[in-house]
């Protein structure tokens, strides 16, 4: 396990962070970064190296002005996991394994770019055993991976605590990867997204291809809800499988609309396999 290297992706913020920690992101903190903030009177920032003679000639009354810059700082990147029973689903991929992979990739990518990483997991309560406070120490990604794989996802639990996970977060704006299958009822999902609307939320949707695409072609199947939502009889045939796919496509669109409504980023859909390259592209395009 020591040789395990999580996948790395790159992310960028489209907002200025507030933070004293030096890091890779643009902040509002004035300092010695490379992001130009404006011209200030020389006496406010008496650094002769920043002296802008051209600008000094332009200002009235004439005086020396210097260029001021923003500091580049670090943020906290959160991985918020939904550990309701439905995440035990294992179709063509194991959702718990995907959770571990993605969380480890986030931790790895965050620490590699100088940010702190924190893990919060929720089912009907906030999982304190899975909580890890913001940290940038080495080996964190491997540790998180191991911890998630070793954990037990409870039987017959929902994700009622997701809106309350914000209490575990720092109040300053952070980047939050909300990793779930998003099989939540509308009310819970709305509350969750609105409680995190102060943060930069990247919804990561874990759907298995066997949930809607890789269905048996023909035959009678009975399915049972993993969270106690009852049974459903399905006589699978072409029209019904098409209907199921249609419903999932519709759901995809609905999720996009809902996330936009609550100021979250566009959801990133993971099907069976997590590809950090795709996530990078998704994040950079959206940002």
């Amino acid at each position: 396990m020591t040789s395990f290297t999580p996948q790395e992706f790159y992310y960028r913020l489209h907002w200025r962070a507030r933070g004293a920690q030096p890091g890779a992101h643009a902040t509002r903190t004035p300092g010695s970064g490379a992001d130009f903030a404006g011209h200030v009177p020389f006496m406010d920032n008496p650094d002769p190296r920043r002296l802008d003679l051209r600008a000094s000639l332009r200002v009235i009354p004439r005086r020396y002005v210097v260029r001021s810059f923003y500091e580049r700082g670090a943020i906290v990147v959160y991985a918020l996991l939904d550990t309701s029973t439905s995440m035990r689903f294992a179709g063509n991929a194991e959702k718990k394994r995907l959770l571990a992979d993605i969380a480890a990739a986030i931790a790895w990518s965050a620490t590699r770019s100088g940010d702190a990483f924190s893990l919060v997991a929720c089912d009907d309560v906030v999982r304190q055993d899975l909580f890890s406070p913001p940290s940038a120490r080495r080996g964190l990604a491997q540790e998180v991976h191991k911890k998630i794989l070793a954990t037990d996802i409870g039987n017959n639990v929902g994700a009622q605590a997701l809106p309350y996970a914000t209490e575990q977060l720092r109040p300053s704006r952070s980047l939050i990867f909300l990793i779930s299958d998003f099989h939540l009822d509308e009310e819970l999902l709305t509350r969750t997204l609105s409680s995190f609307s102060a943060h930069d939320v990247v919804p990561v949707v874990l759907w298995d291809s066997s949930e809607y695409k890789d269905l048996p072609n023909w035959g009678w199947a009975r399915v049972r809800d993993m969270e106690g939502g009852g049974d459903r009889s399905l006589f699978l045939r072409r029209s019904l499988t098409q209907q199921i796919q249609q419903q999932y496509l519709q759901r995809k669109d609905d999720l996009k609309v809902l996330c936009r409504k609550f100021g979250a980023r566009a959801p990133f859909f993971v099907e069976d396999e997590f590809d950090a390259g795709l996530l990078t592209r998704h994040l950079l395009e959206a940002g």
Binding site: F89, D225, M226, G229, S233, L234
Partner: peptide, 14 residues
């Protein structure tokens, strides 16, 4: 016997 499914509410009622 039934197949476990994450959320039957996503499935159509046929």
């Amino acid at each position: 016997a039934a197949f476990p499914y994450p959320s039957v509410s996503r499935l159509p009622e046929d």
